[in-house]
Design a protein around this nucleic acid. Structure first.
Ligand SMILES: Nc1nc2c(ncn2[C@H]2C[C@H](O)[C@@H](COP(=O)(O)OP(=O)(O)OP(=O)(O)O)O2)c(=O)[nH]1
Ligand SMILES: [Mg+2]
Ligand SMILES: [Mg+2]
Ligand SMILES: [Zn+2]
Length: 749
DNA sequence: GCCGTTTTCGGCCCGACTGTTTTCAGTCG
């Protein structure tokens, strides 16, 4: 069984147990287990096969019992316990709980007292007036149930984020202008950037006090939103509506002083909140949407901002995309919370179509649109001939397109534009296995995308054979939309993503995060797995029109949920890196074998290439190599400061060789307090003291050296100290470093 | 069912809204 199927089975167990009135915490354990299975980056079947069921208990929240049940599901595809539960409670009875407001207790009562077996029988019972006679039920309840049966079919339906976004923007516009609204923020799964949302959640700051009249103006306006079918509930602080489409929108009003705490609460996820609140409790604190309170004397200690709330319990303010109770708490504790990628980090788009196949924009229109959007390079990747519906390209038409691209590049160059168009192709992996175009054509391309569009119903073995064959093909750069899923429409074909990732590791290939809001493929969990394995991700629009380029932001959201940082994504790189990769014989640089090398080895490699290039008189290649040495050193410096607990590793003195360390403002943000500055001949590290200008380059009296061994470092004991960051020491160091007159002659740490 | 530098037993997040309740249970966020 796949992880997804295992999770669904555990979910069902939880529902059935809940219906039977089992211990709620036991029910939670199953739900929690299901969530963990969904979030697991590896196939659990593989884990069980390799290491046995025991190994599953390494997953937080999975103990001996759940491990055995998961193993049973994974290997046999069935679970004895689930079969028994199903025999006791028919599926049609479970369907009763899909009626809004109907939980396990009410459903069980109806089943027991009235013998209701299905939604149809429930409707009949309501219409016969039998429901209102039950204890705990009344006329109103009966009416609500009857009306709710209509919604049962749509229960659990989710809306794609991009579609939700359109509604959110309209809702915000609708609410704007209400005087009582001081601040407002869409929260919930929408704010977390989840690929689909179950409902919309809007938080409103209504000012210093929760005056009933003020709140009423907000709620009245909310109730007048276009397409409101029904007001589900309306109280003193919150209100819920349902639109004609069935989509629910929740509104929550809070006073200003609680806005931060409320935003923390309303952003969720539920599981994240439970963890936060549990941790607070262990510290003698209580967290709710109203604020953070001391349990002992009920004094309020935080609530204005989210930062404050998290800080009160010793946690960093997590980016909303990470608040899923996956790895974020462990990462925070290890000081390894990622600095997430942003849309502005993307410099290129490496998957798009033109009117030569099924795109609507011409080559030149796509180029203009990409430039207008601030991109620095694109790859044109039209379909290959197998995609007859799109009038896919054969070798001749492809080569003709490449001639045109050459022309465009020449024009760009003449214009002085720093923009490059790459000659690419989205080549189908044929049903039988081979690539759709001959090897000699593919070898000429700058960028080859392999896609599996046909034969998606083949068995796993065949699918994997095709995918792995493509990855092993020497000209293929990347696999596009690797699972083939269409959100809410079509499940992925039968692919074992871990094997695909492993093959990419072996062959130095890349994987796509297709940013089309219907695809988002690879998804967050798989992207995280790729990152863990060291496989770079390419976020691509797969645009079929100029406007199609704008979907990149959805891809970035998904990437952020995966915890990807700027350099985990291949197309955040400047195009000159690309050239540098070719110059240094390392294309694509981001290949795993290369990435896994210690930085010192990389520098040694570039040094050798640099010398060789000089000997050959190839100044351009030499310059690239020189630049790479600079970047590598910069990377080392940056890594050292990214983590709170890390001390500078292996920086030691050794004269003799200097290079251009170029750390531009746009490449390294000066968030830390140390920046490296380009010198004429030598290097210096300078403290970043706010007013410090990067343009202020000076010849440094300092030498910086990269050491391979800590032992080489020890001889500098007299001036180096291990340094662990904390606020007070940082401040002291900052002061010392600001006093330029008295700088030491060497830096290291 | 899971979990453990205050626990191997006894906890497991906390609050709002509804309906029917004479004091709170059920459901939901
Ligand atoms: N503390 C706490 N907060 C909750 C609970 N349930 C929901 N919340 C908070 C966190 C959620 O993100 C937020 C909105 O609730 P929703 O039911 O709309 O969930 P969410 O938006 O996360 O996902 P969705 O896509 O709507 O299913 O309310 C809960 O049981 N406890
Ligand atoms: Mg929601
Ligand atoms: Mg909601
Ligand atoms: Zn495409």
């Amino acid at each position: 069984m796949t992880n997804r199927e295992i999770a669904a089975a555990l979910e069902e167990v939880a529902d059935l147990l809940e219906f039977q009135g089992a211990n709620p915490f036991r029910v939670r354990a199953y739900r929690n287990g299901a969530q963990k299975v969904k979030d697991a980056p590896k196939s659990l079947l593989t884990i069980v096969g390799d290491s046995g069921a025991e190994a599953l208990t390494a997953i937080d929240g999975v103990g001996k019992d759940l491990a055995e049940k998961i193993a049973e599901l994974a290997t046999s595809g069935t679970l004895a316990m689930l079969d028994e539960l199903r025999a006791e409670v028919p599926a049609s009875v479970m369907a009763l709980m899909r009626v809004p407001g109907m939980g396990p207790k009410k459903a069980a009562t109806l089943h027991k007292e009235l013998g209701v077996q299905s939604l149809d029988q429930l409707r009949a019972a309501c219409e016969a007036g039998e429901v209102q006679k039950l204890k705990g039920f009344g006329k109103k309840t009966e009416e609500t149930i009857l009306a709710g049966i209509e919604h049962a079919a749509k229960a659990g339906e989710r809306v794609r984020w991009a579609d939700a976004d359109a509604i959110v923007q309209r809702l915000l516009a609708h609410m704007d202008g209400v005087e009582a609204i001081k601040r407002r923020e869409p929260a919930g799964s929408y704010r977390r950037g989840k690929e689909t949302v179950g409902d919309l959640d809007l938080l409103v700051d209504v000012g210093a006090t929760m005056d009933a009249k003020t709140v009423a103006t907000v709620m009245d306006r909310f109730g007048e939103f276009e397409g409101v079918a029904e007001v589900i509930a309306r109280g003193d602080t919150k209100m819920s509506i349902r639109l004609d489409s069935g989509l629910q929108i929740d509104l929550r009003c809070v006073p200003s002083e609680s806005f931060g705490a409320a935003l923390q609460y309303f952003t969720g996820s539920k599981e994240h909140n439970v963890e936060v609140r549990g941790r607070a409790k262990a510290r003698g604190l209580k967290v709710s949407e109203w604020g953070v309170f001391n349990t002992a004397d009920d004094t309020r200690i935080a609530g204005d901002t989210e930062e404050e709330v998290y800080a009160a319990i010793g946690l960093p303010c997590f980016p909303p995309e990470l608040r899923e109770n996956r790895q974020e708490f462990a990462a925070a504790e290890a000081g390894e919370l990622p600095r997430l990628i942003e849309l502005s980090d993307l410099r290129g788009d490496l998957h798009m179509h033109t009117s030569a196949t099924d795109g609507r924009g011409t080559l030149r229109e796509m180029v203009a649109a990409a430039r207008q959007r601030g991109l620095e390079y694109i790859a044109i990747t039209d379909h290959s001939k197998r995609v007859t519906m799109a009038h896919g390209l054969d070798a001749d038409r492809l080569r003709a397109q490449w001639k045109e691209i050459d022309l465009v590049n020449e024009e760009l160059q003449a214009e002085g534009a720093e923009f490059v168009v790459l000659k690419g192709i989205e080549c189908d992996i044929l049903e039988a296995g081979p690539m759709d175009l001959p090897d000699d054509v593919l070898a000429e391309a700058d960028w080859v995308i392999a896609s599996l569009h046909y034969g998606q119903n083949q068995p796993r073995a065949k699918i994997m054979e095709r995918l792995l064959g493509a990855v092993a093909h020497p000209s293929v750069s990347i696999v596009a939309h690797p699972t083939g899923r269409l959100i809410g429409k079509r499940a992925s074909y039968d692919v074992e993503v871990n094997e695909l990732i492993a093959a990419c590791v072996e062959h130095g290939k890349l994987l796509e995060l297709n940013a089309n809001p219907m695809r988002l493929d690879l998804d967050d969990v798989n992207c995280a797995a790729a990152k863990a394995a060291g496989v770079p991700i390419v976020i691509s629009s797969d645009a079929h029109s100029t406007e199609g380029l704008d979907v990149l932001r959805y891809g970035v959201l998904q990437a952020r949920r995966a915890g990807l940082e700027q350099w985990d994504v291949f197309n955040t790189r400047r195009f000159n890196f690309w050239e540098a990769d070719k110059a240094s014989g390392l294309f694509p640089r981001a290949s795993v074998a290369w990435r896994n090398k210690p930085v010192t080895e990389k520098i040694a490699y570039f040094l050798a290439r640099h010398r060789a290039a000089l000997t050959k008189g190839d100044n351009k290649a030499a310059a690239f190599c020189k630049q790479d040495i600079g970047y590598s050193i910069g990377w080392l410096v940056e890594q050292s400061f990214k983590k709170d607990k890390v001390t500078w590793p292996n920086v030691w003195i050794d004269g003799g060789w200097y290079t251009n360390l170029t750390i531009g403002k746009d490449r390294w943000t000066a968030e830390g307090w140390l920046v490296a500055v380009q010198g004429q001949e030598k290097w210096r590290l300078a403290p970043f003291v706010g007013q410090f200008q990067l343009s202020e380059t000076t010849v440094s009296p300092y030498k910086i050296d990269i050491g391979l061994r800590p032992s080489a470092f020890e001889k500098h004991d007299e001036w180096s100290i291990p340094y662990t960051r904390d606020a007070s020491r940082d401040e002291a160091l900052r002061k010392a470093l600001a006093d330029r007159e008295n700088w030491p002659t060497h830096f290291a740490g």
